[in-house]
């Protein structure tokens, strides 16, 4: 069937599949709309950034975040009444230790806390190289770690989805939690940026 499909424009193929799937009663139009509206409404790196900012501001929250990521996300109401749909593992950067997240087998990623994954995260180049030469990969992102920094790569091969807790930048003691959250980038939460 793939031979046949190569001649059909991809948008047409998708439309045909959608019609067959809804025609067979497998899913409804409302199901399909719901998937996208939840993605657009709920999934954002702002969520992860707020958790990081609280962990910087509140040592007790930091402890809870590292001990049980799901409970720490639930404190913000992320994931709704059922909580996150995955096991959240938060890994903390420390002086001399930098964490980096990858999924070599597909592209597992905590979408609800980091937003839809960037296309580079799904690329074969990132998936293949992050476990083999992470320092070189980081340098392509413009991130050079202090000499002697240990890199810990996490390959999301099972049920945990990982998020990096970056180091709090120096000179941010005056910032509120909202101000701190604004410093945190999606790449910082993956480990391809320092914050």
């Amino acid at each position: 069937m793939s031979e046949h499909h190569q001649d059909v424009p991809i948008a047409v193929r998708v439309r045909q599949l959608e019609e067959r799937v809804t025609g067979a009663g497998l899913v409804t139009d409302a199901d399909l709309d719901g998937v996208l509206s939840r993605l657009y409404a709920d999934a954002s790196p702002v969520n992860g950034a707020r958790m990081v900012a609280r962990a910087w501001a509140d040592p007790a929250y930091r402890q809870r975040l590292l001990a049980d990521g799901n409970a720490a996300a639930a404190e913000f109401g992320f994931g709704g009444a059922d909580g996150l749909s995955y096991r959240l593992a938060v890994v903390a950067n420390e002086p001399g230790l930098h964490n980096l997240i990858v999924c070599t087998l597909c592209s597992c990623y905590p979408v609800s806390l980091l937003g839809p994954s960037p296309s580079w995260y799904k690329s074969l180049a990132y998936r293949s190289r992050a476990v083999r030469e992470p320092a070189t990969v980081l340098s392509e992102f413009g991130l050079t770690l202090p000499e002697g920094t240990q890199i810990a790569v996490w390959d999301a091969s099972a049920e945990s989805r990982y998020m990096v807790l970056p180091l709090r930048p120096a000179g941010t003691g005056h910032l509120s939690e909202v101000g701190l959250a604004a410093l945190v980038t999606r790449n910082g939460l993956i480990g391809t940026a320092s914050v």
């Binding site: 476990v131 890199i151 810990a152």
Partner: peptide, 25 residues
């Protein structure tokens, strides 16, 4: 049970100073 298992890059690749952690059944 699923375990987080940490490997040394040197053991995996014969080079490298980093670690790689996987979750394995």
């Amino acid at each position: 049970a699923v375990y987080a298992v940490r490997f040394r890059a040197f053991d995996l690749w014969g080079e490298g100073a980093h670690t790689v952690t996987l979750a394995l059944w």
